[in-house]
């Protein structure tokens, strides 16, 4: 039997989504989003280095509405991955594994990343940088 055709025991499809599993997969998903964000950062730096005309063209791309929406969602990906990453580092010290603690730290991460995102959005919209 090839590896792809082996029967699997039931896993994802029999579980109700829980804050633990949802935050876990969200960490991986936002990490993948931020990998694309790294490419955008490099594109932005290269455009800055390439001169006035190239930077104006890059701002045209980065400032267009579809990209702007993606960037604003990317701000949340950044703060979520940052906050949940700190949660992971805390776990790496061997602390916070009781189920009540895991739920509490999960909600703290959500609250903190949402707050930081809203503050950043406010500053971006107020500062004319967006």
């Amino acid at each position: 039997m090839t590896a792809g055709k082996r029967p699997l025991s039931p896993h994802l499809q029999v579980y109700r989504p829980q804050i633990t599993s949802v935050l876990s997969i969200s960490h991986r998903f936002t990490g993948a989003v931020l990998a694309v964000g790294l490419l955008l950062l490099v594109y932005w730096l290269a455009a800055l280095a390439a001169g006035e005309a190239a930077y104006a063209a890059a701002l045209g791309v980065l400032g267009s509405w579809p990209v702007r929406v993606v960037l604003f969602l990317g701000v949340f990906a950044f703060f979520y991955h940052l906050c949940n990453g700190i949660r992971h580092l805390w776990w790496d010290t061997g602390r916070g594994f009781e189920i009540a603690q895991v739920y509490r730290s999960g909600w703290i991460v959500l609250l903190a990343s949402a707050t930081l995102t809203l503050v950043a959005w406010g500053l971006l919209l107020a500062g004319g940088g967006a």
Binding site: A56, L59, F78, L82, L123, G127, G129
Partner: peptide
């Protein structure tokens, strides 16, 4: 991850106070 937490926060704070249109 530890390095990026520090560098990322520094970069975010720097960019949020900057005018991205002023090359």
């Amino acid at each position: 991850a530890v390095g990026l937490a520090l560098l990322g926060l520094w970069f975010a704070v720097s960019m949020l106070g900057a005018d991205l249109g002023d090359r």
